[in-house]
Amino acid sequence: MKKKPSSLRYYQEGPPSLVDLNKWTLNIFIPDQEKPIQINYNELRSIIQRTENRRVVCVCNWSIRRTCTVIKE
């Protein structure tokens, strides 16, 4: 059986460059807002997280159990 190529392709030119975490920001664009929300690296790291083991069930009659880390509400 011949394996089909993935429809998702990721490309990178050369090795990743170093990131200055003092200047790095995450921009979150929200519809109908003029400016994005900007979060720096330290603010992002300070978000409280929770690790959970959950089962995801699909209506197509399959399920999968995975451990993931989510932002605590």
Rank of each mutant, 00 (worst) to 15 (best):
N40E: 00
F29C: 07
Y10K: 10
K23A: 14
E13K: 14
L18M: 08
N42Y: 07
S63V: 05
T69R: 04
R66V: 14
Y41W: 13
N61T: 11
C60E: 05
K3H: 07
S6E: 06
R54K: 15
Q12I: 05
E43K: 11
Y10D: 03
P36K: 02
K23G: 01
W62E: 06
T25Q: 12
N27Y: 04
W62H: 11
T25S: 06
D20M: 01
V59R: 11
N42D: 12
R50A: 07
P31W: 04
S6M: 04
N27G: 07
I71M: 08
E13C: 06
T25L: 10
E43I: 08
N22T: 15
N61Y: 06
D32Y: 12
Q12C: 08
I37Y: 02
R55H: 00
L18W: 04
V56C: 10
V70S: 02
G14D: 00
I48M: 09
S7D: 08
T51R: 14
T69W: 00
G14R: 00
L21V: 11
E43Q: 15
G14P: 01
V70M: 05
M1S: 06
T69M: 01
K72V: 02
K4S: 08
N40L: 00
N22Q: 12
N22R: 11
D20A: 07
E52C: 05
N22C: 10
N42L: 09
E34N: 13
N42S: 15
Y41D: 03
R65V: 12
E34C: 06
V19E: 03
R9G: 04
R9Q: 12
S7A: 09
I28V: 13
E13A: 14
E73G: 14
E43N: 09
Q49I: 13
C58Q: 04
N27V: 02
N22Y: 12
S17D: 04
R54H: 08
T69E: 01
